[in-house]
C-alpha cells in the first residue's frame, strides 16, 4: 500500500514513453520531409524519410499495444472521440499511416506518381501535426500527474517532435542529398525553441507547485538534456554551417544529438517524473471546543 506523499504512477512505463518518442519523432519527420521536398529546397528524397516517419509512428503505436492490459480489445480505443485525446490520436493515426505510405510510395522511383505524391505528402504533414498535437493533449489531460497536466508541457512536446524530426531529416540529408544549410539553420532554431520551452516549463511548474520528487527528477535530468540535446546539438550545427566540407556529417551528428536529447527528455517526463497528486488536507478537523488546525499537502513544493 502506498502512503500519503505522491508516489510514481505504475501504469505507464517505458512503453508509453516509446509512443511519445516514436510518435513525436515520426510526425516531426513527416512534416519536415514534406517541407524539404518543396521545389527550391535541397531536393531531399521524400520517400525514404516519409517511410521512416511512418515506421517511427508505427513503432510508437506498437509500444502502446504492448502496454495495454487487454491488447485484443485494442479496437475499443476508437469508441470515445467526443472527449478522449487517445481516441483522437488513434483516429488520426489510422489515416496518417496509410496516407504517409501512399505519399512515400508514389514519391519513390518504384511507383512514381508525382501528382499523387505532391498532394498526399502535404496531407500527411497536416495529419502528422494533428497527431503531435493529440500527443501533447494526452499528457495535458492526465490530471492525476502534476508534471504532465501543466499546460507549459504542451509546447515542449510539439517543439521537441519537430526538433527530432529535423534531426532525422539531417541524417537523411547526409545520406541522400549532401549539404543542407537551411535544415541546419532550422535545427538551431528548433533546438533553441526547445531549450526555451523546457526552461519555461520547469520554471512554471516550480512556481505553480508540483511534487518535490518530480521536480527533483526533472531538475536532475536537465543538465544532460541541455548539454546534449541543446548546447552540443546547436554548436555542432553551427560548425556544420561553417565547415562546408564536413557539413553533411556534422549536420547528421547535430541531428543525432537533438534526437537523443529529445528522447531522453520524454523518457524522463513520462517514465521518471510521473509522480501522482498524492493527498492533501486544506485544514484539520475541530475536536471538542478547539480550533481547526492548519492543513498539509505532504510531498509538495508550494
Amino acid at each position: 500500500m502506498n502512503g500519503i506523499e505522491p508516489w510514481h504512477q505504475v501504469n505507464w512505463d517505458w512503453r508509453a514513453a516509446g509512443n511519445f518518442i516514436g510518435g513525436g519523432s515520426g510526425t516531426g519527420l513527416v512534416i519536415l520531409a514534406a517541407i524539404a521536398s518543396l521545389p527550391g529546397s535541397q531536393g531531399v528524397l521524400y520517400w525514404p524519410l516519409g517511410l521512416l516517419g511512418a515506421v517511427l509512428v508505427g513503432i510508437g503505436l506498437f509500444c502502446v499495444w504492448l502496454e495495454i492490459g487487454r491488447p485484443w480489445r485494442a479496437l475499443h480505443v476508437f469508441f470515445h472521440p467526443q472527449s478522449s485525446w487517445m481516441t483522437r490520436e488513434a483516429f488520426v493515426s489510422a489515416i496518417l499511416l496509410p496516407v504517409t505510405l501512399i505519399a512515400a510510395v508514389t514519391a519513390s522511383p518504384y511507383l512514381p506518381l508525382p501528382g499523387v505524391a505532391g498532394g498526399t505528402m502535404w496531407l500527411a504533414a497536416i495529419l502528422a501535426a494533428l497527431y503531435l498535437f493529440c500527443q501533447a493533449r494526452i499528457l495535458h489531460a492526465s490530471k492525476g500527474i502534476p508534471a504532465w497536466r501543466h499546460p507549459a508541457l504542451m509546447p515542449v512536446i510539439v517543439v521537441t517532435g519537430l526538433a527530432e524530426g529535423c534531426g532525422f531529416l539531417l541524417l537523411g540529408t547526409a545520406l541522400f542529398a549532401g549539404s543542407a544549410s537551411w535544415t541546419l539553420a532550422l535545427l538551431i532554431g528548433l533546438v533553441l525553441a526547445r531549450w526555451l520551452s523546457w526552461r519555461r516549463y520547469l520554471a512554471e511548474l516550480t512556481e505553480t507547485g508540483a511534487p518535490t520528487k518530480a521536480l527533483a527528477v526533472l531538475n536532475g535530468a536537465t543538465p544532460m538534456i541541455n548539454n546534449v540535446g541543446h548546447f552540443a546539438a546547436a554548436v555542432v550545427a553551427v560548425l556544420a554551417l561553417i565547415w562546408i566540407d564536413a557539413g553533411p556529417w556534422l549536420g547528421a551528428l547535430a541531428g543525432l544529438l537533438a534526437i537523443a536529447g529529445g528522447w531522453w527528455m520524454k523518457f524522463v517526463v513520462i517514465a521518471r517524473a510521473a509522480f501522482n497528486q498524492g493527498f492533501a488536507l486544506p485544514l484539520t478537523p475541530v475536536r471538542g471546543q478547539g480550533e481547526a488546525g492548519p492543513g498539509d499537502k505532504p510531498g509538495w513544493r508550494n
Binding site: 502506498n2 504512477q9 501504469n11 505507464w12 508509453a16 502502446v64 502496454e67 495495454i68 492490459g69 487487454r70 491488447p71 480489445r73 485494442a74 475499443h76 480505443v77 469508441f79 478522449s84 487517445m86 494526452i138 489531460a141 492526465s142 490530471k143 492525476g144 500527474i145 504532465w148 510521473a274 501522482n276 497528486q277 498524492g278 493527498f279
Partner: peptide
C-alpha cells in the same frame, strides 16, 4: 468488458483511486 486496460484513467485520476492488476 469494454475496458482495454490502457491505464489512461489511472493517470488522469487525481485521487489515485484506480488500480490495474495484471
Amino acid at each position: 468488458d469494454l475496458c482495454i486496460g490502457c491505464g489512461y484513467c489511472a493517470v488522469a485520476c487525481p485521487y489515485q483511486a484506480r488500480h490495474i492488476v495484471h
